[in-house]
């Protein structure tokens, strides 16, 4: 994981306007995103418990709480419109507003992934010959994937809080291990020896694994937007290795 203490200090890009209300509006927009992120982390945690530990109540908890993230997403959109209309943002402020709009979308979709996992957990429960407990190696593999994905997501939200380039690079560096964890889980689920699971159950588990991996991918998207805000560089579709090396070389 990235040593955040080594991060280059980044100025408070959203603050210091002559019109203080403008600072407050940008801070509010960022606060909505951070709150959404916190919800998603909780939702993903509950969804994993529902899937791996077979805690049905946690799955219902996820489904009940999903609208909170959706409503916050609407609030973020409204705030974006409001800032554009009132302030006609330019330069870093424009980048913040554009990035926050995209980040809100990624965070909301990450929340959807948690809901999807909770749905799969309930479906597993309801399938004929229901699955009371996952094999231990599958549990461990799901937890490993969850650790990677959720850690990346939490870091992406922290990166948004401080527009932290170094933290964003750390997320990019976590992409290969995330990919490996996903592959390992798919390998286990595809194992021909796994006769204790029905094909339908395997599909549910594969769907859940894919959703978990996607949470990590959304974190990467968010990290790209953080770099866009902080440095003004659109790093989407850029070679990750070269990007990491270049920016690390610049001191991030």
């Amino acid at each position: 994981m990235t040593d955040t203490n080594a991060s280059r200090p980044v100025p408070d890009l959203g603050g210091g306007h002559t019109v203080r209300r403008y600072d407050e509006e940008l801070a509010k927009l960022r606060a909505i995103i951070l709150e959404m992120g916190e919800h998603v982390v909780g939702q993903t945690q509950s969804a994993l418990a529902a899937l791996v530990d077979r805690e049905e109540s946690q799955a219902y908890r996820v489904l009940d709480r999903e609208p909170q993230i959706d409503y916050l997403s609407l609030d973020a959109d409204e705030e974006v419109f409001r800032v554009i209309v009132r302030r006609q943002p330019t330069a870093v402020d424009l980048r913040i507003v554009l990035a926050m709009s995209k980040i809100a979308g990624d965070v909301e979709r990450a929340g959807d992934k948690a809901t999807s996992i909770a749905g799969q957990a309930l479906e597993l429960k309801g399938l004929a010959g229901g699955l009371d407990e996952l094999p231990e190696e599958l549990k461990q593999s799901f937890r490993a994937l969850y650790d990677r994905a959720c850690c990346m997501f939490e870091q992406s939200i922290q990166a948004v809080a401080h527009f932290d380039v170094a933290l964003s690079l750390g997320i990019f560096e976590d992409e290969p291990p995330l990919c490996e964890a996903g592959k390992e889980l798919r390998r286990l689920l595809g194992d021909e020896e796994r006769s204790e699971l029905t094909p339908r159950q395997i599909v549910c588990l594969l769907t859940s694994a894919h959703a978990l991996e996607r949470v990590g991918r959304h974190a990467s998207n968010i990290a790209e937007q953080v770099i866009y805000v902080a440095l003004g560089q659109d790093v989407r579709y850029r070679n990750r290795e070269i990007l990491i090396e270049t920016l690390r070389h610049q001191g991030y």
Partner: peptide
């Protein structure tokens, strides 16, 4: 430039 065009100019 950034401070001026974003309204941070004191």
């Amino acid at each position: 430039t950034e401070d001026y065009i974003t309204g941070r100019f004191g």
